[in-house]
C-alpha cells in the first residue's frame, strides 16, 4: 500500500509538468487552431528565466582582502554579490537563496511578452496556411530558440537549487498513519505539485468566472459568430497565447530544482506533452490535465522494481521508457478522440 502511494506521489511531479505544458498546448490549439511545436521551447525559456535571474543575483563585486591569502600566497580576492552590498548580509543572501521562486515574478511578464511577440510576429501569418506549414514553422522556431539558448548558456545542465527551506524530504507517511520513513517525499516536488494545481485552478477559474474567459470560451466554440457580434476575438486569442506561454514558462521555472535545465529539456517534454494532449482529447482542457497526471503516475508505476521485474521476465526490460507510448496507442485504438474528446471538436 505504501509502495503504491509512493509511486503515485512520484508520478505527480512529472505529471504536473506534463499537465501544465499540455494545458498550454490545448489552449493554443483550442483558441487559435495552431499546433505549436515551439511550446517545449517556451517551457525551456521559462527554466532559463530562473537560470538568468540566479546569474544576475550572483553578480559580484571583487574586493581584495589583505588579511587572508589564497593557496598561491596572493592576497585573497573576495567576491560579494551586489545584492548583499545593497541589502545587507541577511536580506541579500536570502534573496539569492530564493532566486527560483523570485524568478516566477520575472518569468510571468517575460513569458507573456514572448508569447505576444511570437503570436503577432509569426504565428498570426499562418492561420490560413495548412497545418503542415504551421507545424513546420513552429518546429523551425523551436530549433532556433534552442540553439540561441545553447549558444548563450552552453550545452551543460546548469544547477539551480531550490531555497534551503525547501531542501530535503518530508515524511509524508506519518501524517496519514503509516510508520516513519515509509513514504518520504522531497519537499520541492510537493511544492511543484501544489503550485501546478494552483496554476491549473487559476487558468480554469479565469476561463469560467471572468467575462474575458467567457468570451474566449465562446470564441473557442464558434469564432465566427463571436466576431460577428462585434467582439475583437483575435486580440483576446493573442492574450490567451501569452497566457499559455506563461503557463509553460512557470512550469519550466519551478521545474529547475528538480532537474537542472539544459537546452534540450523543452524538446524532451514536448513529444510526451503531445502524446498527453492526444490521449486527453485534443481541444479538451480537463482532458489534458487528467491525461497529464495519469500518464505521469503511470510512468512512475512502470519504473517500480516489481513491475519492471515482471516485464523483464517477458523480455521487455525498462518498460518505463515506452509505457506512455503503448498506453497512447491503446487509447487511440479504442477511443480515437481521446479520453475526454467530444465528437465534432477538432476532428481534423
Amino acid at each position: 500500500m505504501d509502495a503504491i502511494l509512493l509511486q503515485v506521489l512520484n508520478g505527480l511531479d512529472k505529471g504536473s509538468a506534463y499537465a501544465l505544458i499540455a494545458l498550454g498546448l490545448t489552449l493554443i490549439f483550442g483558441t487559435l487552431g495552431v499546433v505549436n511545436f515551439a511550446h517545449g521551447a517556451l517551457f525551456m525559456i521559462g527554466a532559463f528565466c530562473a537560470v538568468t535571474l540566479q546569474k544576475i543575483l550572483n553578480l559580484s563585486s571583487i574586493t581584495i582582502d589583505p588579511t587572508q591569502t589564497d593557496f598561491l600566497g596572493n592576497p585573497l580576492k573576495v567576491k560579494t554579490p551586489y545584492v548583499i552590498n545593497w541589502f545587507g548580509e541577511v536580506a541579500g543572501s536570502a534573496i539569492i537563496n530564493w532566486s527560483v521562486p523570485l524568478a516566477i515574478l520575472v518569468a510571468i511578464p517575460v513569458m507573456l511578452a514572448v508569447g505576444y511577440v511570437m503570436e503577432r510576429g509569426l504565428i498570426k501569418h499562418f492561420y490560413k496556411r495548412p497545418h503542415a506549414d504551421q507545424i513546420l514553422v513552429t518546429f523551425g522556431l523551436a530549433i532556433v530558440l534552442q540553439e540561441i539558448i545553447k549558444a548563450n548558456y552552453g550545452a551543460n545542465p546548469i544547477p539551480t537549487p531550490a531555497p534551503d527551506a525547501f531542501h530535503g524530504s518530508y515524511d509524508f507517511g506519518v501524517m496519514i498513519g503509516f510508520e516513519a520513513n515509509a513514504i518520504i517525499y522531497p519537499v520541492w516536488r510537493l511544492i511543484y505539485f501544489c503550485f501546478s494545481a494552483l496554476v491549473i485552478g487559476a487558468v480554469f477559474a479565469f476561463l469560467r468566472f471572468t467575462t474575458f474567459g467567457m468570451v474566449v470560451r465562446a470564441g473557442m466554440a464558434d469564432r465566427e459568430t463571436v466576431g460577428l457580434l462585434g467582439i475583437n476575438i483575435d486580440k483576446r486569442f493573442t492574450i490567451m497565447f501569452g497566457i499559455a506561454a506563461a503557463v509553460a514558462g512557470l512550469a519550466g521555472v519551478m521545474y529547475t530544482p528538480i532537474n537542472s535545465p539544459n537546452y534540450h529539456m523543452g524538446m524532451d517534454f514536448l513529444v510526451l506533452s503531445f502524446v498527453v494532449v492526444v490521449v486527453g482529447g485534443m481541444g479538451s482542457l480537463p482532458g489534458a490535465v487528467l491525461a497529464g497526471f495519469l500518464l505521469g503516475v503511470l510512468e512512475s508505476f512502470a519504473s517500480m522494481n516489481a513491475v519492471k521485474g515482471f516485464f523483464e521476465a517477458i523480455y521487455l526490460p525498462s518498460i518505463d521508457q515506452i509505457v506512455i507510448y503503448l498506453v497512447a496507442i491503446i487509447v487511440l485504438l479504442t477511443r480515437p478522440r481521446g479520453l475526454l474528446g467530444r465528437k465534432g471538436v477538432m476532428e481534423e
Binding site: V35, H131, A132, I135, V271, F274, V275, V277, V278, M282, L316, P317, S318, I319, Q321, I322, Y325, L326, A328, L332, E348
Partner: peptide
C-alpha cells in the same frame, strides 16, 4: 495533425526501444 503527432510518438518510442528496451 493527429497523424503527425502519432508518427512522432512512434518514432520516439522506436528510439526508446532501440536505445534501451
Amino acid at each position: 495533425i493527429y497523424f503527425s503527432i502519432l508518427t512522432l510518438a512512434f518514432a520516439q518510442m522506436s528510439f526508446a526501444l532501440a536505445y534501451s528496451v
